[in-house]
Amino acid sequence: MGAEGRGKGDGNVNVLADTFAWFTDPANYSGANSIPLRVMEHVQLSAQPVFLAALLALPVGLYVGHKRRFEFAAISVGNIGRAVPSFGLIAFLFVPTFAWPGVLGYWAVFIAMTLLAIPPILINTSVGIRSVDRDTVEAARGMGMSEWDVLLRIEVPLAVPLIVAGLKTASVQVIATATLGAITSIGGLGRFIIDGMAAGRDDIVLGGAILVALLAILTEVTFSLLEGVLSPRTSSGHRRWFRRTDSESGPPDTQTGPAGLGVA
């Protein structure tokens, strides 16, 4: 695999230099353990649970927000999601699923990712819908719009920024969980970290960590831009860029902040 491994905490400069060497070594760009492959794997691993969680959580969130019922249940889901350690979830799910088809541990990680992605999407969607100005909604009903129309034409468009923020949080959360999931046999960038630590190769560990961090930050930024683009214009025609800061300082039960709500 290249240069000799370095021990832990063996002098910063050396580790960085080694990591740089690892990044620039062409051997790491082909084969089963190549950097691009792992990146691809990681993205693939992460995308599916987000879709599934969205499929499950969005309708429920829309319902809870529109009807303004079961709010306490929704908040509780959010709180539990925050408290459950993803590490524990993966480990626990490993036992019943280890015999399932596919890579060892894949299903445990997949289910864990999906479960952990649900709370942010659910909470943000319901809060987003619920926060739509009541007067606007009432006026729409008064004009003769059906409940579906009200939901789809008024509430959803206005709630989009918060909904996207929820997807953002969920995505970053999932990327983190996928990384941790490498304690099983799945692929992805976590492999560099876990295998690197086992082999005492700090350069690989660091390389993996940097890649994961970059991926997470890139995802976060992309979603934030999307959030900004989809933000409703104010009457002056300017997009409210500060919506981002607004939503982040929103009510404590709105999981709009970046990443790891819950855990890695």
């Binding site: 660091l206 961090a213 930050i217 982040e248």
Partner: peptide, 19 residues
């Protein structure tokens, strides 16, 4: 925010190389 976005295992892994 950036610190928060970095998956914790990555951050811990990064730090342990130094500390």
């Amino acid at each position: 925010g950036m610190l928060y976005t970095i998956p914790s295992i990555a951050l811990f892994a990064f730090l342990q190389a130094y500390t």
